[in-house]
């Protein structure tokens, strides 16, 4: 089933506030093997000029993934989520995410297309602080595989 092209450009209400915790940054860094002291040692991060621990570059997925679900599950879109695989991902940082940030993500439908019978959705996530400072833009491509 083709995705509804009328929804391209639709945006969704901002996600609940996500507070970036020091321990979450440490836990995430450890889970991907990031060994930089800037992601684990507050003194090292401050000495490098950051206000607090620096999140690894893919940390933003935690914030954008939840927001993007609003788009993926929009009943007017027609995406079969049970057949979805993650096709592509990108992050564009205005500045790094640091511990203590209070972030919100506004998701929108960036593009829909069909290829080889697969429905392909690109969601965009605009992550900013609660005071409106832009932090990161994410694009996620979700591929709903053609039914056998």
């Amino acid at each position: 089933m083709a995705l509804n092209p009328d929804l391209v450009g639709r945006s969704y209400p901002p996600s609940p506030v996500y507070q970036v915790g020091r321990e979450k940054v440490r836990e995430f860094a450890r889970a991907i093997g990031e060994s930089s002291p800037l992601s684990s040692d507050v003194d090292a991060a401050r000495a490098a000029g950051y206000p607090d621990l620096v999140a690894p570059p893919t940390f933003a997925i935690i914030v954008s993934f939840e927001a993007g679900r609003q788009a993926a599950f929009d009943p007017e879109l027609g995406l079969d989520y049970t057949r979805v695989v993650h096709g592509e991902q990108s992050f564009e940082y205005i500045r790094p995410i640091v511990a203590g940030d209070e972030l919100v993500c506004t998701a929108s439908i960036h593009a829909v297309r069909e290829a080889a019978g697969n429905d392909i959705l690109t969601t965009r996530g605009d992550i900013s602080t609660v005071s409106g400072e832009p932090v990161c833009t994410t694009y996620s491509v979700l591929v709903s595989r053609r039914a056998e």
Binding site: I32, S36, P56, P57, T58, G87, E88, Q89, E92, P96
Partner: peptide, 24 residues
């Protein structure tokens, strides 16, 4: 995420990454 270390271990600063993209 783990693959990004090839760059972050080189520059020693994950905060200097301005963009990162790939297909799966």
């Amino acid at each position: 995420g783990a693959a990004s270390r090839v760059a972050t271990e080189w520059i020693r600063d994950p905060g200097r990454v301005v963009s990162y993209s790939c297909r799966f």
